[in-house]
């Protein structure tokens, strides 16, 4: 059977390109990455969600503060690891203008979520999530997913899956130090 050298070369080139792309996307992916749209560098989509104590909370009401927006669920083991960190980070960076907001992407009832939050000793705002809000953030297909929003409401970083505490600290510092509100204070 006669083989077409050009076709073979083309196949080899395509395979090599795919392996290259696959390797680099795997490296970039890190742990627990998602195929969601990258919204980093863009304004954080505004939303209004109910808090556990029944208040309507609008994200844009935090403008002027840095926000760590964490999508989580009661059934998510890695999310449980982060929550004590967030408790500490809220205490440490709250006075500098950080507000941590947890959005529960859960089918569990409000009471069950409240029970879980109480057990974890959470001291930051917890909102009852909706799928549509996740979609606004590019589709939250992996939990935890965390967005870091600067004082102007711009997303400066996002992390998928469980990451190191130090990475959170770095991103918090970045979100606290960026934005026109910071420039005006200087």
């Amino acid at each position: 059977m006669k083989r077409n050298p050009a076709a073979l070369f083309f196949v080899a080139a395509v395979v090599a390109a795919m392996l290259f792309v696959g390797f680099h996307s795997a490296r970039r992916a890190g742990s627990g990455n998602s195929d969601s749209l990258d919204v980093t560098g863009k304004p954080a989509p505004d939303f209004t969600l109910d808090s556990l104590d029944g208040k309507k909370i609008q994200l844009s009401s935090y403008k002027g503060q840095a926000v760590l927006l964490n999508f989580w669920a009661t059934w998510c083991g890695p999310c449980k690891i982060e929550m004590p960190w967030f408790v500490d980070l809220q205490k440490e960076y709250g006075p500098q203008g950080l507000q941590i907001v947890g959005v529960a992407m859960d089918d569990a009832s409000k009471d069950e979520i409240a029970k879980f939050v109480k057990e974890m000793g959470v001291n930051y705002t917890i909102l009852l999530g909706k799928e549509a809000v996740g979609q606004e953030y590019g589709g939250v297909n992996v939990l935890p997913t965390t967005f870091f929003i600067d004082r102007d409401g711009k997303i400066v970083a996002r992390e998928f899956g469980l990451q190191s505490r130090s990475l959170f600290v770095d991103n918090i510092k970045k979100s606290l130090s960026q934005g026109r509100a910071v420039q005006a204070q200087k």
Partner: peptide, 22 residues
């Protein structure tokens, strides 16, 4: 055959990426 090979490798490349693998 070429298209089949390309599809196979495309699927393979996606499957091997942890971020894309559901």
């Amino acid at each position: 055959q070429l298209a089949g090979v390309l599809l196979l490798f495309a699927a393979s490349a996606l499957a091997q990426s942890p971020g894309k693998k559901s």
